[in-house]
Design a binder for these strands. Structure first.
Lengths: 205, 205
DNA sequence: GAATATATGGAACAACGTTCCGTTTAACAA
DNA sequence: TTGTTAAACGGAACGTTGTTCCATATATTC
């Protein structure tokens, strides 16, 4: 039943075990490549040429392919890290803000993450099996993060109960990938609308 | 205000005017190319190589590019024709069937059209300006077609009033582009559900 | 049937993802 | 420190893509 398409199976930090018996230059190059890929993707979209990423990282394409045998492996790893960062931000925001404030800030964080990824949606729906595991990872990490924020805001009586995190995530993802005919602040407006709608008693007169 | 990205402006058949002063072999090759493209797209998806289409049509790539200066021009023309055919089917179905039956059959026709186009969704959301005009053409041709079917079914008292054709079209398009984790008959099931829900008094007990 | 504008085919180009392999270098034992 | 060696490196080279170019072929017209 293992289709081999799971995202690098890192429950916690067991990839640092893999990294331990890597040569020092290899570890450094992997880090440089991921940083370069992140920069290039946000500048030129996920369709950016492999050579551009290698150049930005200051390594040859051979080195890139040694660590990421396929272009999609690099994309997946970058997204995995960004998803993790986005999920982790929930805890931090929750500590530093009032419940609803934390929720609102995290939603905007999520919007920024999705919106910055030009071409990600296209890649996900391309039918390429290399990306099949990404949506599952999205949900696995992001749903609990959002769930925690929702629970806290519900307990504080700031938003209403029964909101389904998966639906919110999907809705935001759709709204952040706007059609070409709508304005740029469309997403912001819809987000404000959604957040207002979530407030307790929003339906009352 | 003309952004030059409109779909070939064919109100009626004014492209046959263009075709008139084309050489006979050119006309024949254009037809062969469109037929070949249609066949290849449905067999290998819209990402199929240009050379494969040229070979299927029995012409050189030079000939293909003479008539369709960009790959996307060929794609757009194929879809324009299929959209037209789908819209025209509404009138035929309306004549040969009872109102609700015609509506149901047309919806399934639309589902088949969308589902057969592997990679179309990705192309539409790719951000490539070459495809920007397609959604508008979708709506322009398909909305009136569906509107007519809805009106007739409403007048016959078979479905309820107030259904918005744009929403139905968008919903069906989304449902026909299923995520990889759902089964193949997902779309059929959802379509049946929607059609049942449209029936007059579907909400009653 | 010649003259000519038009259309054709496929070699050639640039850019892409990916592979290959001669060279370099980090790691470790002596 | 030095020598040995497995690991990692860089970038030329390959195959496939979209697109361009132009010498050749062929409808069309008179």
């Amino acid at each position: 039943m293992d289709d081999g398409s799971e995202i690098t199976n890192t429950s916690g930090d067991d990839d640092s075990a893999d990294r331990k018996h890597l040569r020092a230059d290899a570890r450094r190059n992997i880090d440089d490549l991921l940083a370069a890929a992140m920069a290039v993707f946000s500048k030129s979209g996920v369709d950016a040429p492999v050579r551009e990423i290698a150049k930005e990282a200051g390594v040859g394409v051979g080195t890139l392919y040694r660590h990421f045998p396929q272009r999609s492996d690099l994309i997946k790893e970058v997204f995995r890290r960004e998803i993790d960062a986005c999920a982790d931000a929930a805890a931090t925001l929750s500590q530093d803000n009032a419940p609803f404030e934390a929720l609102a800030k995290w939603m905007n964080r999520y919007v920024a993450f999705i919106a910055a990824k030009r071409g990600l949606g296209a890649a996900l729906h391309s039918g390429d099996p290399a990306y099949e595991a990404l949506p599952a990872y999205f949900e696995k990490k992001l749903r609990p993060a959002l769930q925690g924020l929702l629970d806290r805001a519900v307990e504080a009586g700031e938003i209403r109960d029964g909101l389904r995190p998966n639906e919110l995530l999907r809705a935001v993802a759709s709204l952040s990938n706007p059609a070409p005919d709508v304005g740029t602040d469309f997403t912001d407006n819809m987000m404000r609308l959604m957040l207002d709608g979530m407030r307790r008693g929003a339906g009352d007169k």
